[in-house]
Design a binder for these strands. Structure first.
Length: 859
RNA sequence: GCGGACGUGGUGGAAUGGGUAGACACGAGGGACUUAAAAUCCCUUGCCUGAUCAAGGCGUGCGGGUUCGACUCCCGCCGUCCGCACCA
């Protein structure tokens, strides 16, 4: 029995596509463009299943759109800076560059073996000076436009990776890569002013209607806009006012204290003469920011002795505390406490015996506050001129009154903070500035770019390199030193998609190419970048535009469509001693799992593939044993792309069996049809004249499949597309080719159907489809063949099957002509035997006829 | 705590402008071929009653509701997952 010889086939077609230049993207203003991009990989050394899934999804889109006639750009590159290279370099006594480049070479071969339709001429690696010199220029432009700045601040310090992390990179108080609890440190760091664009980044989200709702929501929450007021509280015996931010100015009459953050400037001033306060502040700084610490920490504070004056109540003073639950970097780092309507304030007030005065009531009647605050909206009470106003109006009235008295302003505040981009690493893009003892911070002159990384043995930090940092100041020529921090690697990935549009030596990107290719029509990658990469990239477009780069309004959003794929998971296994086992030597025996040598295995949960639990399968194994197309089709078959997918050996076997069945079908068809003449060009639908019923039905089924697969692929429902094609395959297998050959037009219909099957599968299993295409006798490449059109007349059924229900319960079905009139349908339905029995002796109260769907008899 | 998503056979999943639930697969069971295995092919497969007939009943997390008709819409629970989290 012949088997699909993937080893021979796959390599041969990869060469043929390359020779024919099938996937080369050329600027052509006369054709509609389609830019499909998958998030480029970090070159860790080998591709993993997540890559296989990601790039298969992208490749199906690219090949499908190409067949539909779009001018497709589908590039690939390498996000090549990062820490693993530094560690590997130390381990292997080599330069990170060597390690990275050899990884790229290996992974490039692996991707090519998958038959992915990339335009490899556009490949780039972010660690090449040719790439990073442009981002050094971009940084200098940001600096010149005030979008990059340096400031001393408390930062998130990852003690394992020994570097600073952005807020986005701290997950549950731990570093996103190392998982180590983050510490707080004061350091002088470079920041990008992403907060300048907070409003635009937020409001533009609603235009991204081809993004998953959930990603937009995550970004919305991350930006975290809130509207409120800043109130200036006068301080007794002090010339300065205390600025306090609140979203509830309507509760100002319930204020019973004020509190500031331990790192508020006023706190350190007051601490000078207050030892108790000084030690409290010290204690606060010692505490980490991890989740546990925050949850367990009690609301504590120290009374500074200072009194704030209530803005509206003459003579009322509020004690000023320094409190551990006030955050310096949100709002103004100071609050007024309204215990009746804020749980934290209430906890604090109970502890320090402060008054609790309700000023909002759900219904306007007096309320009392016990252990929980009333945080909802309602009607203002005990609030002088606000009394009786609903909360929303009270907010406005209070704010207006504050403005009138010169004691406050309406303010919008964002949770988003500026992006800290300094990293204390070696294998990254050097930040192009020079520190001069006399001139201060001096940008590296553009002519001196790129600032390249040193060669040779380096250790892990530019800081400790023997001589790299010593330079003369570009301004005064005196001795100076280079900035030894490098960019956060998210810097590189914030603009690479622009460069793919048209490589360009003089500038980061080519304006004409950018205008043609951008935005990315479909971006595909993991959900883990929902607020990291995807937010930074949106910010970059805006910042680049402000610096005068050719980013038009049309491409200010870099990714117009986004698909976030789910993870690849696998069952976990342990032996009897609890050791994790690799799945490669384990198989199922009935309901049990055993190793190859018969040892019992405990099967655990199905989890995300991870090295620590050993539930990983190396794609290389599958490519070798079953071929690229088997792996590709498996990735598409069962689960919708945005959901998690379980990798299973049984599933792979199932796909492999299907491919071989299809292989035999194509083979038999090719042989069987060899003697019949095909007068039509490929994929031209045969004439319906004089066809027998079987041929007509096959033709109709084929057209229906064409239509359904188009819809499914356009909406990324690949699993459904596969199911539809398998239905057609099943039908073809049941079809008697010998009979079709001798009937009028039968051979042409059969040929059309089998050709169509291959064509529809080509985006998913391109090598297989191409080989089948050749066996059917074509000299042309399927990769260059246009997508077939479904004939609308062929999709319309002349007969329809109606559900016949009694009181909404299905009793039987009825097949009638589509255009049968209602009275005739009713007559037919009532004449049906099961219906006559069920309605015998009963009154039919009502008959509901829904054309082409259902007849419901109410009795 | 706040925000969001989701709950369908043994499993992955189909079907939502309300209209034949379980497409397509995986797994399982039975059979054919074979000395045997692999491969391949055929049959069965939501649950229950019934005899593997005829036929009937029950079924989309649970409880209500709207409707001729609800996996789909509304209300209230329960559960799972994800994001954010002392954000004033």
């Amino acid at each position: 029995m012949s088997r699909y010889p993937f080893r021979d086939v796959e390599h041969r077609w990869q060469q043929a596509w390359k020779k024919a230049g099938c996937f080369k993207a050329n600027h052509d203003p006369d054709r509609p463009k389609y830019y499909v991009l998958e998030m480029f990989p970090y070159p860790s050394g080998r591709i993993h299943m997540g890559h296989v899934r990601n790039y298969t999804l992208g490749d199906v889109v690219a090949r499908f759109r190409r067949a539909q006639g779009y001018n497709v750009l589908h590039p690939m590159g390498w996000d090549a800076f990062g820490m693993p290279a530094e560690n590997a370099a130390i381990e292997n006594q080599c330069h990170p560059k060597e390690w990275t480049e050899s990884n790229i070479a290996h992974m490039r071969d692996q991707l090519k073996a998958m038959g992915l339709s990339y335009d490899w001429d556009r490949e780039l690696a972010t660690c090449e000076p040719d790439y990073y010199k442009h981002e050094q220029k971009i940084f200098l432009d940001f600096l010149a436009h005030g979008l990059a700045y340096r400031k001393e601040s408390t930062v998130n310090w990852d003690p394992v990776d020994k570097t600073v992390l952005a807020n986005e990179q701290v997950v549950d108080g731990k570093g996103w890569r190392s998982g180590a609890p983050v510490e707080r440190r004061k350091l002088s760091q470079w920041f990008l002013r992403i907060t300048d664009f907070a409003e635009d980044l937020l409001s533009s989200l609603e235009k991204l209607n081809r993004w998953p709702e959930r990603v937009r929501l995550m970004q919305e929450n991350w930006i975290g806009r809130s509207q409120g007021a800043v109130i200036q509280f006068a301080l007794q015996g002090h010339s300065d006012c205390l600025a306090v931010y609140t979203t509830r100015p309507d509760t100002v009459f319930g204020a019973s204290f004020c509190a500031i953050a331990p790192d508020h400037p006023l706190a350190s001033i007051l601490a000078v003469n207050n030892p108790e306060l000084a030690s409290f502040i010290q204690e606060c700084n010692r505490l980490g920011v991890s989740e546990e610490v925050i949850e367990q920490a009690e609301k504590k504070g120290v009374d500074t002795g200072l009194k704030a004056l209530h803005p509206f109540i003459e003579g009322q003073t509020l004690p000023l505390y320094v409190a551990n639950f006030i955050l310096m970097d949100y709002g103004t780092g100071a609050i007024f406490g309204c215990p009746a309507h804020d749980q934290r304030d209430l906890d604090f007030a109970r502890r320090y015996h402060l008054p609790v005065q309700p000023v909002v009531s759900p219904d306007g009647h007096p309320i009392t506050i016990g252990e929980s605050a009333f945080t909802g909206e309602g009607v203002a009470i005990n609030s002088d001129f606000l009394n009786g106003l609903p909360s929303s109006q009270a907010k406005k009235a209070a704010t207006d009154a504050l403005v009138a008295k010169g004691l406050g302003t309406a303010e919008t505040v964002y949770r988003l903070r500026d992006w800290g981009i300094s990293r204390q690493r070696y294998w990254g893009c050097p930040i192009p500035v020079i520190h001069c003892p006399d001139c201060g911070i001096v940008p590296v002159p553009e002519d001196d770019l790129p600032v390249t990384l040193p060669e040779g043995d380096t250790g892990n930090f530019l800081e400790t390199h023997p001589n790299w940092k010593h330079v003369s100041c570009p301004r005064c020529q005196g001795p100076a030193h280079r900035e030894t921090d490098t960019f956060d690697t998210f810097f590189e990935s914030s603009w690479y998609f622009n460069r793919f549009a048209g490589p360009c030596t003089e500038a980061p990107f080519n304006p004409q190419e950018l205008a043609y290719w951008m935005p990315v029509d479909q971006y595909i990658g993991g959900i883990e970048h929902a607020v990291l990469h995807l937010l930074y990239a949106r910010f970059f477009q805006r910042a680049l535009r402000r610096c005068g780069y050719a980013i038009s309004e049309q491409i200010i959003e870099p990714f117009s469509g986004l698909l976030t794929q789910g993870m690849v998971r696998h069952r976990t296994f342990r032996d009897t001693t609890g050791q994790w086992l690799y799945p490669e030597n384990i198989h199922q025996q009935g309901h049990d799992w055993v190793t190859k040598d018969g040892q019992p295995v405990e099967a655990g949960r199905i989890e995300k593939m991870s090295k620590s639990k050993r539930n990983v399968v190396d794609p290389a194994t599958i490519l070798d044993s079953h071929g690229a197309d088997t792996a590709r089709l498996f990735m598409l078959s069962d689960s919708p792309p945005e959901r998690d997918l379980e990798w299973s050996e049984a599933g792979i076997d199932g796909i492999w069996r299907y491919l071989n069945r299809l292989w035999r079908l194509v083979d038999q068809s090719a042989n069987g049809l060899a003697k019949t003449k095909n007068k039509k060009p490929p994929l031209a639908s045969p004439s319906v004249e004089n066809l027998d019923q079987a041929a007509l039905e096959l033709l109709q089924a084929t057209h229906k499949t064409i239509a359904a697969v188009k819809t499914d692929l356009e909406s990324f429902r690949f699993n459904k597309a596969v199911a539809r094609i398998r239905e057609l395959t099943n039908r073809l297998e049941e079809t008697d080719l010998d009979h079709f050959k001798i009937t009028n037009g039968g051979a042409a219909v059969y040929r059309f159907s089998i050709e169509t099957t291959l064509c529809l599968l080509a985006p998913m299993i391109p090598h297989f489809a191409e080989e089948g295409w050749k066996r059917l006798g074509y000299q042309t490449l399927l990769a260059q063949t246009a997508w077939p059109d479904a004939d609308p007349n062929m999709i319309m059924d002349h007969q329809v099957t109606l559900a016949i229900q009694i009181n909404g319960k299905l009793k039987t079905t009825l097949t009638v002509a589509r255009d049968l009139t209602r009275p005739e349908i009713e007559k037919c339905a009532l004449a049906l035997e099961p219906i006559r029995q069920a309605t015998d002796g009963k009154t039919i109260k009502r008959i509901i006829v829904v054309p082409e769907r259902v007849v419901n008899l109410v009795i």
